[in-house]
């Protein structure tokens, strides 16, 4: 059980409105990712839900009940911090047991739950160690274990993978996704990495300057970004945004074409350009092209494409895959 609803939630620090007012519904069992550039207010929003910051206005409901004024411990939520925030002077066992001990759970029950969580997270061999003796990935698991044992209404993750190296990040990403499927619990996850958001989320909330730009499933955001910000933020490599005559030809102020939606040809196409850099990944080829009338454009071609710097290429956007944006930055119907 873990439905969270935000109604007009506001937060200001010393007169500066960091979050001018957010409405959001998070359903039970959903994996929701808050994504946005640094300073967009995503962490603040998470901390408001956690109760680590007091809301300056609005209402936070957890399972239908008003939790706006409740202290963090009584909201029934668990949080995994960016730095993991493990207690350095306690063993792994005592770290995981701590929330249960605070809740006054009896010893046998604590032991059962801690060992259960440790087994789930492959931590059984490390229960006597201190956090300082663990690797980054293991610390991450301890932090998750500490969250699991409480059987919270929802898990809150604050950029939990940002301190891990790339390979570990991918495997922890999978572990968290598996955990979500296994527990079926609500998870709210903050990240600045749109790949994490796309791969893990049921629902993505794109934030910018404290306000929600768009809410939707990963594919919804990919297929129909509501505005220029979301269009540029979701997808890798980034969507090409083209202004001027080429955009006017489509009846828009700006048009967006994803690199994977450009068809390349050596002979003919809508836009002519010269390759500046070619990145050959084997499975894909990224071509950075200086296009005539459209400026610098990135194109993604599946498989190997034999073009190098200085070569002339022609690009044609796929029909129906050209996003049109008005002067206000919003997507045009």
């Amino acid at each position: 059980m873990g439905a969270i609803a935000l109604q007009g939630v506001k937060k200001s620090f010393g007169g500066v409105a960091v979050i001018p007012g957010v409405d959001l519904e998070i359903e039970n069992g959903e994996f929701v990712v808050f994504v946005g550039p640094s300073g967009c207010g995503k962490s603040t929003l998470l901390r408001l839900i956690a109760g680590l910051e007091d809301a300056s206005g609005g209402m936070i409901r957890i399972n239908g009940k008003d939790a706006t004024a409740l202290p963090p411990a009584r909201r029934g939520l668990a949080m995994v911090f960016q730095s993991y925030a493990l207690y350095p002077h306690m063993s792994v066992y005592r770290n995981i047991a701590f929330p249960l001990k605070m809740a006054g759970v009896d010893k046998a029950e604590i032991d059962r739950k801690v060992r259960g969580a440790a087994a789930t997270l492959n931590l059984t061999d490390y229960l006597d160690r201190r956090p300082g003796q663990l690797s980054g990935g293991q610390r991450q698991r301890v932090a998750i274990g500490r969250a699991i044992v409480r059987e919270p209404a929802a898990f809150l993750f604050d950029e939990p993978l940002s301190n891990l190296d790339a390979a570990l990040r991918v495997s922890m990403r999978l572990e968290i996704s598996e955990l979500h499927q296994k527990l079926g619990a609500t998870m709210v996850y903050v990240t600045h990495d749109q790949v994490e958001a796309m791969t893990m989320a049921d629902k993505i909330v794109v934030l910018n300057r404290g306000a929600i730009e768009q809410v939707g499933s990963p594919l919804e955001l990919y297929r129909s970004p509501a505005n220029l910000f979301v269009a540029a933020f979701i997808g890798s490599p980034k969507m090409n945004l083209i202004e001027g005559a080429a955009a006017a030809a489509h009846g828009a102020n700006t048009i967006g074409v994803r690199p994977e939606h450009l068809t390349l040809s050596r002979e003919a196409g809508d836009w002519k350009g010269v390759v500046t850099i070619a990145e050959h990944l084997g499975s894909d080829t990224f071509l950075h092209v200086e296009g005539e009338g459209v400026g610098a454009v990135t194109a993604r071609v599946s498989g190997e494409f034999g073009a190098g710097p200085g070569d002339t290429v022609h690009m044609t956007p796929e029909a129906g895959r050209v996003y049109r944006f008005g002067a206000d930055g919003k997507a045009m119907a």
Binding site: P72, F81, Y87, R146
Partner: peptide, 27 residues
């Protein structure tokens, strides 16, 4: 002493006295 640890303790249900005895003082 990282502030996140104190926040973690609060999330874990530690009141002010538990926070001081179990987390802050040892650190």
């Amino acid at each position: 002493i990282p502030g996140e640890i104190l926040e973690a303790a609060r999330m874990d249900g530690a009141g002010l006295s538990a926070e001081i005895i179990h987390v802050l003082a040892p650190m």
